[in-house]
Deep mutational scan, measured.
Amino acid sequence: MLDDRARMEAAKKEKVEQILAEFQLQEEDLKKVMRRMQKEMDRGLRLETHEEASVKMLPTYVRSTPEGSEVGDFLSLDLGGTNFRVMLVKVGEGEEGQWSVKTKHQMYSIPEDAMTGTAEMLFDYISECISDFLDKHQMKHKKLPLGFTFSFPVRHEDIDKGILLNWTKGFKASGAEGNNVVGLLRDAIKRRGDFEMDVVAMVNDTVATMISCYYEDHQCEVGMIVGTGCNACYMEEMQNVELVEGDEGRMCVNTEWGAFGDSGELDEFLLEYDRLVDESSANPGQQLYEKLIGGKYMGELVRLVLLRLVDENLLFHGEASEQLRTRGAFETRFVSQVESDTGDRKQIYNILSTLGLRPSTTDCDIVRRACESVSTRAAHMCSAGLAGVINRMRESRSEDVMRITVGVDGSVYKLHPSFKERFHASVRRLTPSCEITFIESEEGSGRGAALVSAVACKKACMLGQ
């Protein structure tokens, strides 16, 4: 009897593995994704193909990295998701002549009506938060230079001027797309009239992360975010950046690689679950690469896999709870928690219980395998993109072996128990001629924006502006 049951459990697990095998990517698959990513990057950089390229390769006008001589107080704003952060950054000489960066910050959550109302409502709310922060720190009387981390696709015309191309991540505030974001912020500050600010720089969160990590390690020339969304930036040779005049030196390019796949480059790798996630998203047909990796989508992918296993009578005796059938019910943090389970399955059992399920031991094991399959594919897909960037940098610099540091931020990278190990191992397999160091950014977005502002202020002083 026991043997029969054991055989049935083994057969069930084997069927589960057959279904989950769809998520496995072979090294040849990853090399294919990497080569296609490089081709799209090239198209994004070139003037004649930029418009139709899915990977936009947006110039950021960040050319210099901090040298350690900029000092002063800077205000930093960070808008990239449902939370908005205001930070005071003091850049100065530390002990023994070292450079020191001290920060104080406060988080504000953005109400739904500000995210989806008008641009005026959104930026009025942001300036209200700045006003509140300055009151708390008794700094209303000071006109501070301000660095703005704005983590949406922007076409820069200068370091302090950028046109919002399109909202992502659930934002829909009308009247912002096609307009200068810094102008919208300046107008809102003017409307309030109770404080003055000098907006000197606007950067993407990947750029802010790279600059913040450069402060720790001067070989950091790539910034990457794996959180709600997924994106990367890197220092490109100016001669390859056709959208900006000049051939000397390097400029940081914001790849906006989340949109890779929007022209069909990933079609052969998309599964039924991916198509369902895409169809029910706020932007169907867009940001397809990001939807395979980002935390906004990972939990939902797992939920759809679990429903398939229920329908195949391989999980929960073929019956799903009402909660499990509800879109968004299986949160991405559950994926991390399930994979963090120590082996007694308590954590998995508790999560499934909150979803109205009474799982068996085998159910718990199957749910864990589903989570591992989805998150491992995410790590491997992400590795193909980064390997594409790094191999490109090595080739354009004609280096036999390139040493490089990548600064990384984002909740999936930082909080998932195995993502970074799987990701690092896969990147290294795909970049055999590179020695890569990964560092995690601390308060990256805010500190990085302030350091970019410090560079901009120093330049302005040198130019006598």
Rank of each mutant, 00 (worst) to 15 (best):
D3V: 07
A6Q: 08
A6E: 02
A10G: 11
A10L: 11
A11M: 14
A11T: 08
K13Y: 11
K15S: 14
K15Q: 03
Q18T: 14
Q18R: 10
L20F: 14
A21W: 08
A21N: 15
K32A: 14
Q38G: 08
K39C: 10
M41P: 04
R43C: 12
L45W: 03
R46M: 09
L47R: 14
S54D: 08
K56A: 11
M57V: 02
V62I: 08
V62Q: 05
S64V: 15
P66F: 15
E67S: 15
L77K: 03
L77S: 02
D78H: 04
L79P: 09
G80I: 02
T82Y: 00
N83F: 03
R85N: 01
V89Y: 01
V91K: 10
M107T: 06
M107V: 02
Y108N: 01
T116M: 11
L122S: 01
Y125H: 10
C129G: 09
S131A: 03
F133T: 04
H137T: 10
Q138S: 12
M139P: 07
K143G: 05
L144E: 03
F148G: 01
V154L: 06
E157D: 05
E157Q: 04
D158W: 01
G162Q: 01
N166I: 03
N166D: 03
N166P: 00
W167L: 04
W167Q: 01
W167P: 03
F171V: 00
A173M: 14
G175W: 00
G178N: 05
G178T: 07
N180F: 02
G183C: 02
L185P: 13
L185K: 00
A188T: 06
D194S: 11
F195G: 03
E196R: 15
M197Q: 04
V199Y: 00
V199K: 01
I211G: 10
C213K: 00
D217L: 14
Q219M: 15
C220S: 10
V222P: 04
V226Q: 00
G229V: 00
A232C: 10
E236Y: 00
M238C: 15
N240G: 11
V241P: 04
V241L: 14
L243I: 00
E245N: 07
E245Q: 14
M251H: 15
T255V: 00
E256V: 02
F260L: 10
S263E: 10
E265H: 07
D267I: 11
L270S: 13
E272A: 11
E272S: 10
D274M: 04
P284L: 12
L292C: 14
L292F: 09
I293L: 08
G294F: 02
Y297C: 02
L301N: 11
V310K: 15
V310T: 03
H317M: 15
H317R: 12
G318M: 15
E319A: 09
S321H: 10
S321M: 15
E322Q: 12
E322K: 15
L324D: 02
G328Y: 13
F334A: 12
V335K: 00
S336P: 04
Q337T: 13
E339R: 04
D344L: 13
I351R: 07
L352I: 08
S353L: 09
T354V: 15
L355G: 07
L355N: 13
L355H: 02
G356R: 10
L357R: 09
S360H: 15
D363P: 02
R368C: 06
C371S: 08
T376Y: 08
A378H: 04
A379D: 06
G385Y: 04
L386M: 05
A387W: 01
V389L: 15
N391E: 11
N391P: 02
R392G: 09
S398M: 11
R403H: 07
I404Q: 09
V406L: 04
S411T: 12
S411M: 02
Y413W: 09
F419A: 06
R422Q: 13
V427F: 01
R428L: 10
R429F: 10
E435N: 12
T437D: 08
I439E: 12
R447H: 01
L451A: 00
L451W: 01
S453Q: 09
S453C: 12
A454D: 01
V455T: 12
K458I: 11
K458E: 13
K458C: 12
K459M: 10
K459W: 14
K459F: 06
